[in-house]
């Protein structure tokens, strides 16, 4: 399996990463290299192996249903690139 320019454009769009026409060759070269490195895995038989998502075999802890968070609105609005009327402002969202 390897990646082509078309797929690079598709994933770049999904990831909201701009890959310009001039960069695409460079990016392709490097990604193809990395994928070749990954490809070693495919030769290994893993049929009966259970996938491992976490380093340790422990279970999800649960939080008591309590309101503990402080109101940090003023601080958070200050940190925003653009806020007005207590809202984070972005270019018009088109539904």
């Amino acid at each position: 399996m390897s990646i082509n320019k078309e797929e690079i454009k598709k994933i770049a769009h999904l990831a909201r990463i701009n890959v310009s026409q001039t960069e695409v060759d460079q990016v392709e070269k490097k990604l193809v290299g990395i994928l070749a490195l990954i490809e070693k895995m495919q030769k290994v038989n893993t049929n009966s192996i259970e996938p491992m998502s976490h380093a340790l075999d422990i279970n999800q802890p649960l939080r008591e249903d309590k309101v503990t968070a402080k109101d940090i609105r003023d601080k958070s609005l200050d940190l925003a690139p653009h806020s007005e009327q207590s809202l984070f402002i972005v270019p018009q969202v088109i539904e």
Partner: peptide
């Protein structure tokens, strides 16, 4: 998202 709070922009709550 609320639309039109400011012209041509959306506001996020």
């Amino acid at each position: 998202s609320t639309h039109g709070v400011i012209d041509g922009k959306s506001g996020i709550d």
